[in-house]
């Protein structure tokens, strides 16, 4: 070792380097972040797989539920027949799809924290709030486009099953088009909710537990409460409020109006996202 130590001292006698590489002409900060997130989204298997699964369960759900009601129509009670909502029934795959879409949203952030990739991401783009917002924009748009298409497909397939005595819906019916579009909007809000909770918890198990705890566990727990207590609280829960957007027949007299419910769900998402945007600037990564 000491032989190397006695090498002649190196002094900074070189001129400063002229680095030649410059950002592409016309590159904007926002556009660059979006391109980067777009590449990241499609370059791992999990995201396309979760998106494909979500689309699949929405479409297959339309078929299976449609076929189930057609074959079992005779066994339904008159009350059940009166409250039958052909649009909602064909879209109910959305309930299963929210698991895939929600997990995708949570993992989009917690995955980066778990591997430590978030440090590389934020070193390349130190505008943290922008990274978060653009990530949400990219994933939100992709989910919206795919799930809206899946909603229309499920609606078409479901209605084709409703023949004979089973009532079916047509896109021109009151509230029907809104409900079909609502399937895609609801799942978009779910993915954004998942991302916000993922950014807040920074842990996959905690993020998933909080998302599904709020969306799925809370309604069941509230329904256990006696009589009207549960009925009155239930409509204001995020998942229940949001799902009014893709129903035509409201499930209970206490239910919120479609856009009111969706607005309330969007408000919950906005509060979580706002907290995430504030915290991401303050916390060390």
């Amino acid at each position: 070792m000491s032989a190397h130590v006695t090498e002649p001292p190196r002094r900074p006698e070189h001129p400063q380097v002229r680095t030649r590489l410059r950002p592409r002409a016309g590159a904007t900060r926002l556009g660059a972040t979006a391109r980067s997130e777009w590449i990241k989204l499609w370059s791992v298997r999990s995201a396309p797989a979760a998106l494909a699964a979500a689309v699949l369960v929405v479409v297959v759900g339309g078929f299976v539920l449609g076929a189930g009601y057609r074959s079992g129509w005779a066994s339904l009670s008159p009350g059940d027949r009166r409250s039958f909502d052909p649009t909602f029934t064909s879209l109910r795959g959305v309930q299963l799809a929210q698991l895939f879409v929600g997990s995708l949203g949570v993992l989009a952030l917690t995955g980066e924290y778990a591997t430590g990739l978030i440090r590389t991401t934020l070193a390349a783009t130190p505008q943290r709030a922008q990274v978060l917002a653009v990530k949400a924009l990219v994933l939100g748009l992709v989910v919206w486009a795919l799930c809206t298409a899946a909603s229309f497909a499920a609606f078409a397939i479901g209605q084709s099953q409703f023949t004979g005595p089973v009532p079916h819906a047509s896109p021109g019916g009151p509230g029907v088009l809104r409900a079909v579009l609502g399937g895609g909007i609801f799942l978009t809000l779910v993915v954004l909710f998942g991302m916000a909770l993922g950014a807040l918890t920074r842990s996959t198990p905690l993020g998933l537990a909080s998302l599904f705890g709020v969306l799925l566990v809370l309604p069941v727990a509230v329904q256990l409460l006696p009589g009207s207590v549960g009925e009155r609280v239930d409509p204001y829960l995020p998942g229940e409020a949001g799902s009014q957007l893709w129903r035509v027949v409201p499930p209970s007299p206490h239910s919120l109006a479609p856009w009111t419910g969706a607005g309330l769900f969007a408000l919950y998402v906005a509060v979580a996202a706002g907290a995430a945007l504030v915290l991401v600037r303050r916390r060390d990564v």
């Binding site: 660059a32 972040t33 997130e37 980066e112 990739l117 590389t120």
Partner: peptide
Amino acid sequence: AVHPGRTAYRHLHSLAAAN
């Protein structure tokens, strides 16, 4: 600190795109 499921090329490509 990389996503294990991403290829080396895509990892660098996403970083390059960001700048």
